[in-house]
């Protein structure tokens, strides 16, 4: 009953001992750190194991070893049927082209929905929202048949072209919401200065939408980089494989003897995600908090 603390701003009411809030904060931190430890320990263990010689990978819970080596990284890099130089190159290519595609198609579509009037606008927007909730599996089979007919199996087109055609409705929605909140006065004054719609789009709306553009680029990066089902369906030539596919092939072919190499390559495959996350975590977390994306 004496614990009177407001919600976001703890205020000390008469009768609340200062010590109480201090103890509370300590307990809070202790709990959070415990959960974090459990959560992050597997990642740290993965990192440690990737630097241990193969005969030590399965020995011990600890992170450290006296025999740290980068041998796993050297062996793992060349372990697949093509080398990981190739796989990382493939993943990078697919990811960059997908990001550009999403930025292109989603920003154009979003501008139209947020700023222009056209017939069937509400109906089309409802369809857009509908496709956001649609499970991807319903288009999986027919898209495969389509791409197969087009002769696109073992090319990167099935993994990249859909992004240029705005299939990720989530990002369109995100940008529509963002552009709607931009002041229209800027458009008007640009128009008086002789700007057309493309001018307004390029010179006014896009520069102001950088946060939404950044969020879209980051999430596209993470989804595409991690994507497994797409490459699994469309890429079966080993020199075309992306990193997740190569890792899975590695896992299938590997006995316990080369787990260290598998872990080394796993670490490298996660490193870009962690790196970009560190650079842009504020953007990502704000993005997810406002739109509810995964």
């Amino acid at each position: 009953m004496t614990s009177v603390k407001t919600h976001t701003i703890p205020r000390i009411y008469p009768g609340t001992p200062v010590k109480n809030t201090f103890v509370r904060a300590i307990i809070r931190h202790a709990l959070l750190i415990c959960v974090l430890f459990v959560l992050l320990y597997p990642l740290l263990w993965l990192l440690g194991a990737s630097f241990r010689p193969n005969n030590e990978v399965f020995n011990g819970l600890g992170l450290f070893s006296e025999n740290y080596t980068i041998q796993n990284y050297i062996d793992g890099w060349g372990a697949g049927s093509a080398s990981f130089t190739r796989y990382f190159g493939n993943s990078l290519l697919v990811t960059v082209v997908s990001i550009l595609g999403n930025l292109f198609s989603c920003s154009l579509t979003a501008y139209a929905f947020a700023r222009l009037n056209f017939p069937f606008k509400n109906a089309l927007f409802a369809i857009l929202i509908g496709t956001m909730l649609l499970p991807m599996h319903v288009t999986l089979v027919p898209q495969y048949i389509l791409f197969n007919k087009l002769g696109w199996i073992n090319t990167y087109f099935p993994l990249t072209i859909p992004h240029w055609l705005g299939v990720d409705a989530f990002f369109i929605f995100l940008m529509v919401q963002f552009i709607r909140n931009l002041p229209r006065e800027l458009d008007e004054s640009a128009r008086l200065d002789g700007c057309g719609h493309f001018g307004i789009f390029l010179r006014i709306v896009m520069p102001l939408s950088l946060p939404a553009i950044g969020t879209t680029a980051m999430f596209t990066f993470i989804w595409t980089w991690n994507d497994f089902l797409g490459p699994l369906l469309y890429l079966n030539r080993s020199d075309m494989q992306t990193v997740p596919l190569a890792l899975n092939a590695f896992l299938d072919s590997t006995g316990q003897s080369s787990y260290g190499e598998l872990f080394a390559m796993s670490v490298l495959s996660l490193a870009p995600i962690v790196g970009f996350f560190i650079v842009s975590q504020r953007l990502l977390i704000e993005g997810i908090a406002t739109t509810g994306m995964k």
Binding site: F104, S105, L108, T109, Y111, A112, L116, N117, F118, P119, L124, I127, T131, L134, V138, T139, V141, P142, Q143, I145, L146, P162, W164, L165, G166, V167, I172, G196, H197, F198, F201
Partner: peptide, 30 residues
């Protein structure tokens, strides 16, 4: 205003092509 509708459909073109060719069409086909 008149131009606006034309411009809107230019902006929407990539998404509309994707909607019909990669989502709605395939859904009906499946």
């Amino acid at each position: 205003r008149k131009r606006e509708v034309a411009v809107a459909f230019v902006f929407l073109a990539p998404w509309l092509i994707g909607l019909i060719g990669l989502t709605l069409g395939p859904m009906l086909y499946s």
